[in-house]
Simulated assay, not measured.
Amino acid sequence: MGLDEALLDALFNIDQHRALFTDRELVALRYAEIMTTSARDVSEELYDELQAHFDDGEIVELTTVIGMFNFFNRFADALKLDEH
């Protein structure tokens, strides 16, 4: 899909490959991880970091995309759609 294979691999070990990501991407990835694992743990500090890199509309869009992909993954997992 036009994405660099090394960048995709780096997503599995972000802390070891921070140099491959911009600060904006890193905060978005951290936000996605926290939303996925425990959305109530989004701190004021993280939200302040988001606001430093994204406007309000972008934060809403980012939150929507993360939430939708979490929904799709849970939906597919619950229905075992990826099993043959």
Rank of each mutant, 00 (worst) to 15 (best):
A6I: 00
L8S: 06
A10S: 11
F12V: 12
F12R: 09
D15V: 14
Q16L: 04
Q16H: 06
Q16M: 07
L20Y: 07
T22W: 02
T22A: 11
D23F: 00
R24I: 07
R24W: 08
R24Y: 05
R24S: 06
L26Y: 05
L26Q: 04
V27M: 02
V27R: 00
L29K: 01
L29T: 05
L29I: 07
R30L: 04
R30P: 08
Y31M: 09
I34N: 13
T36H: 07
R40S: 11
D41I: 06
S43H: 09
E45A: 13
E45L: 15
L46F: 12
L46K: 12
D48F: 00
E49R: 15
Q51G: 02
Q51D: 07
F54M: 06
D55S: 05
D55A: 08
D56P: 00
G57C: 08
E58R: 14
E58Y: 09
I59E: 09
L62K: 06
G67L: 02
G67E: 00
G67D: 06
F69D: 03
F69K: 08
N70I: 04
F71P: 01
F71R: 08
F72T: 11
D77T: 07
A78P: 00
L79F: 05
L79K: 05
L81W: 11
D82I: 01
H84V: 06
H84T: 00
H84C: 10
